[in-house]
Structure formats: structure tokens, C-alpha cells
């Protein structure tokens, strides 16, 4: 069987043939087996066309639709044109299929227009300056501006700024009442400390001049060149606006209050004087009349006077055995 199937090697086949030569009966049997080979029939598969695939199948369309669309889209090959011709011959209604597909081409509505083209367009300002350069310049400008603003507090104040501080000294310093004039030197010292000049002696002289003269004179002197005042150079100091305002305003308010109190004090003084005079007069009259009564009745009368710091009578007390009179200036405290 291996020999018939052709599975023997050449050497094995030679040995087999030699063996068959030696055994003629077996050789005849083998010759009979050689004639038992089946030959194929001439039958053919006649519906091969039904198995053929086209691109229409790939797309999922029927072949007529595919051809009709392809004609619209790309055009037909010669072979496809022949197929179309034969297809149309089969039925005249088939032409409707091709007509339908030619109608599926869309047409754009040209009346629809984009109205905001101007917003999309770009302009070049100067050919040399590109947008990137412009951006860089603007960034640099912004940084410079921020730096300048940020360093403002650290910059030294100018002499002009220093002068302004001196000009704004309150005029109240000039019109302080006598009792308060002792505080003026303290104020001078405060102003002097603020200025903090190198030429301390000269500066003190200037400040004293400012205090002792009128405001107009101060302004005039401030308009003069700084060198003319003998100030060689100023070392500016940082000014706290709140502190400065407080220092400037408080003396004005205090002076105002002190003036009011001074007037009140003067008014009170005059009233005390009047009252004291009236009291002395009345006390003398009473003492005289009491002495008369004592003389008649034989009783002893004592009189105590209460005086203030200025030696004015502010109250008195009259006592005898049968009578006791106390009198004082109204609404004023009496101390012994």
C-alpha cells in the first residue's frame, strides 16, 4: 500500500521490485491494483457568478444601486457601462433608479453668508513690529510700571516734601495761652526730631524762628532756597501720614480747648470776686448786728471766714449760743 501511495524510498522501492521479480504471483496482483485509480468527472459549477463579490457588497448595497451611485460619484468603467446597458434593456423602469441618484446631489445655499468677517481679520500695525514683539513690549512696560509703583515707598523724600511738613505747622502754637506756652518747646523738639537734620544747631534756630513768627512769615521763609536758611542738607525720613496728621491736628485742638477753658476761668474769677465782695459786705453787716444783740443779751458770738488761694472770702460761719449762720458762694466748693 505504501508503494501504491508513493510513500516508499528509492531503496525500499528497488528492494520491493526485486522481491516481486522473485514472486511473479504477487507481481500480478500488484498490476491489478494499479488499474484501480478514479478519474474526475467533467461536471462544472454553473452559478459561480452568484458567489462573486463586488465593492457593492462591501458597502452593503445592491449592485444596481452601487452602479447608479458610482456613476454619480466617480463615473463608470467600460465593463460597468456594459452592465448598465444590459440592465436598462431588461426593464425601462430601471432608468428611474439612475435618475433618482442624480437628484441626490446637494446644492449649497449661497445666500447664507458669514456676517462677522471683520471680526476675524487681523491687521498689521507696523510691518517691523510683529505681534510677538508688541506683546513683549507691553509685558516689559507692565513690569516696569509695577516695579516703579512697588519701590515708591523706599525712595527718599525730596527736600520739597520736607518743606511741606514744616509749612503745615499749626498756627495755634503761636497763640497758645500763657499757661501752655511752656509746652511749645516740647512741640519744637518734636518737629525738630522729625526733621532730623545733620546741622542740628542750625535747624533748631530755624524751628524757633518758625514758632515765634506768624504763619505768613513761615511760608515766605519756606519759599526761600534751602541754602539761604543755612540748611546744608536734609536727611529725609519716612512720614507716617496718620502720625503726621495727629501731630499736626492735636495741638490745634488742645489750644482751642485751652482757650475756652481760659475764658471760662476768667469768667469764674470775676464771678468769685463779685460774690466775695458781696459776701464780705453782708458778713460785716451781720457781724455788726449780732454784736449788738450780744451786747444786749450778754452772749458771745464767733465768726469763721473761709478764704481761697487768692485771699478772697468764699464762705463764712457765724455762731453764738442761740444762733448759727453759714453762708458761701453759690455752687462753689469751700475748703478750709
Amino acid at each position: 500500500m505504501d508503494y501504491l501511495d508513493g510513500n516508499l524510498t528509492d531503496s525500499d522501492q528497488t528492494m520491493l521490485l526485486q522481491f516481486l521479480e522473485d514472486n511473479p504471483t504477487l507481481k500480478e496482483e500488484l498490476d491489478g491494483l494499479d488499474n484501480m485509480v478514479l478519474n474526475p468527472t467533467e461536471d462544472t459549477f454553473t452559478i459561480k457568478d452568484q458567489l462573486l463579490k463586488t465593492q457593492a457588497d462591501e458597502i452593503g448595497l445592491g449592485y444596481p444601486d452601487y452602479i447608479a451611485i458610482k456613476e454619480v460619484e466617480e463615473g463608470l468603467s467600460e465593463e460597468e457601462n456594459l452592465w448598465k446597458a444590459s440592465y436598462l434593456k431588461e426593464d425601462k423602469q430601471h432608468s428611474n433608479l439612475f435618475t433618482s441618484y442624480t437628484q441626490t446631489l446637494l446644492k449649497a445655499n449661497k445666500n447664507i453668508r458669514y456676517q462677522l468677517k471683520g471680526n476675524l481679520k487681523r491687521a498689521t500695525l507696523i510691518p517691523i513690529i510683529t505681534i510677538n514683539k508688541l506683546k513683549r513690549i507691553s509685558i516689559a512696560a507692565a513690569v516696569a510700571m509695577l516695579l516703579s509703583v512697588g519701590t515708591l515707598p523706599f525712595l527718599k523724600e525730596s527736600a520739597h516734601q520736607m518743606k511741606t511738613v514744616v509749612v503745615n505747622d499749626p498756627p495755634s502754637l503761636i497763640t497758645m495761652p500763657k499757661a501752655q506756652t511752656e509746652k511749645a518747646p516740647n512741640k519744637d523738639i518734636q518737629v525738630k526730631d522729625k526733621i532730623n537734620t545733620k546741622a542740628a544747631v542750625k535747624q533748631e534756630t530755624v524751628v524757633q524762628t518758625i514758632v515765634s513768627t506768624e504763619q505768613r512769615t513761615i511760608v515766605a521763609s519756606n519759599d526761600m532756597p534751602i541754602e539761604a536758611l543755612g540748611i546744608e542738607s536734609f536727611e529725609t525720613t519716612k512720614v507716617n501720614a496718620y502720625e503726621l496728621g495727629l501731630n499736626e491736628m492735636m495741638p490745634i485742638i488742645i489750644a482751642s480747648n485751652m482757650a475756652e477753658r481760659e475764658q471760662e476761668y476768667l469768667a469764674m474769677q470775676s464771678q468769685v470776686e463779685q460774690e466775695s465782695a458781696r459776701l464780705s459786705k453782708s458778713s460785716r453787716a451781720i457781724v455788726g448786728s449780732v454784736k449788738v444783740i450780744n451786747f444786749l443779751s450778754g452772749n458771745e458770738t464767733k465768726m469763721n471766714k473761709v478764704l481761697n488761694q487768692d485771699g478772697q472770702m468764699v464762705a463764712y460761719q457765724l455762731e453764738s449760743e442761740n444762733i448759727s449762720i453759714r453762708q458761701r458762694i453759690k455752687n462753689k466748693p469751700v475748703t478750709n
Partner: peptide
Amino acid sequence: VKVYIFRGRQFLKNYIG
């Protein structure tokens, strides 16, 4: 792209019909 166009055309044709 081709498949989409062909299928789309068929749909449009059917819709018109």
C-alpha cells in the same frame, strides 16, 4: 468615506422616493 457617501446617497434617494 466612500462607504459613508454611498450609504448616504442611498438614504437620500429613498427619502426622496
